[in-house]
Computed example of a mutant assay.
Amino acid sequence: MPIRLNLLREVQAADEERRKDPVKRAILGGVVLVGLVFAWSSVLQLRVMRAGSELARVQGKWHDIEKTYKAAVENRRLAAEADDHLVALQRYTTNRFLWGTCLNELQHLLAGTEGINVVRVRGEQNFNVTPEVKPKPGQGAPKPATSTEKTVLTIEARDYSSQPGDQVTKLKGFLALHAIPGAPSAGVSNQVSLLNISAPQTDKDGSASYVTFSLQSTYPEKTRQ
């Protein structure tokens, strides 16, 4: 019977041992796992890049919309402000002090007195404007701007009545109690003050006696927004 000698047996045994080595298998498994992780991270990176591109596109579109939105909001604010101005002008047109009507009514009041000769009539009209007060964030609505109208009528005259000075009190009462059309608040009494009154005097020709006096009528203030 022939004898067979395997001269590579030891080499083959060593190779078999190396193939069965768990460390080598672990290293091989780790390499495969790292490769899979790298591949998955590459996929995620591609998705992130795609999402970033989509985000940039959406942001660009939003910026375009935001410009249009801001323009629309500003136009709406200007329109509301213009409406407020128109309402204020309309209110002022219907409620403003009418000097012509006031002087016409004053003429009728003077006709009800005896011997009053007007020397001078002076009208003063002032507006005290208070600017808008803007609240701090979260503290409610702003306080609107206001305009307060102050009207004063001053009359300098002479009383030539039979008893000089008697008609001064009568005229003062008329001015205080009679609501003059065109006044800031119709139906509200005015504050009438006697600024001065002189002692009885005589004309140069000595034909008549009179007193000079000054009355000041202050009308109720009118505040508008």
Rank of each mutant, 00 (worst) to 15 (best):
87 V>I: 08
95 N>V: 03
127 F>K: 05
86 L>R: 05
120 R>V: 12
198 S>D: 14
63 H>P: 03
163 Q>R: 09
205 D>Q: 08
93 T>G: 13
79 A>P: 01
38 F>Y: 11
148 T>R: 10
137 P>F: 09
103 L>Y: 05
71 A>T: 03
59 Q>C: 09
89 L>S: 04
129 V>R: 15
56 A>C: 10
80 A>N: 01
90 Q>D: 03
76 R>S: 14
97 F>Q: 03
40 W>I: 11
54 E>H: 06
145 A>N: 11
78 L>T: 04
67 K>H: 07
36 L>S: 06
216 Q>W: 02
67 K>C: 08
121 V>I: 14
95 N>D: 14
207 S>T: 15
195 L>Q: 14
158 R>V: 01
147 S>A: 13
2 P>D: 15
47 R>E: 04
69 Y>P: 00
154 T>H: 04
17 E>H: 12
82 A>M: 09
218 T>I: 12
138 G>M: 06
103 L>H: 03
94 T>P: 03
214 S>P: 00
217 S>I: 09
31 V>M: 12
39 A>S: 14
128 N>G: 08
175 L>F: 04
85 H>V: 11
30 G>K: 12
22 P>K: 12
115 G>H: 01
173 G>T: 12
201 Q>Y: 12
50 R>W: 09
182 G>K: 03
135 P>N: 08
65 I>H: 06
181 P>M: 03
183 A>K: 01
66 E>Y: 13
72 A>Y: 05
154 T>G: 02
195 L>D: 13
184 P>V: 01
222 K>L: 15
94 T>E: 13
119 V>W: 03
175 L>D: 06
59 Q>L: 14
149 E>I: 08
68 T>N: 06
87 V>D: 11
174 F>G: 03
181 P>E: 07
54 E>P: 03
23 V>T: 13
168 V>F: 02
184 P>K: 00
211 V>F: 07
29 G>T: 15
218 T>Q: 10
46 L>S: 01
211 V>Q: 02
191 Q>D: 09
139 Q>K: 14
180 I>A: 03
146 T>R: 00
28 L>R: 15
102 C>I: 07
182 G>F: 05
91 R>I: 08
194 L>E: 12
23 V>A: 15
42 S>C: 09
10 E>V: 08
166 D>W: 07
98 L>E: 02
121 V>C: 02
215 L>R: 00
153 L>I: 10
24 K>I: 15
189 S>H: 11
133 V>C: 05
24 K>P: 00
198 S>E: 13
205 D>S: 09
137 P>H: 06
60 G>T: 05
103 L>Q: 07
58 V>W: 11
152 V>Q: 02
170 K>V: 13
35 G>P: 08
98 L>G: 05
50 R>F: 10
37 V>M: 10
170 K>Y: 07
91 R>T: 11
198 S>R: 11
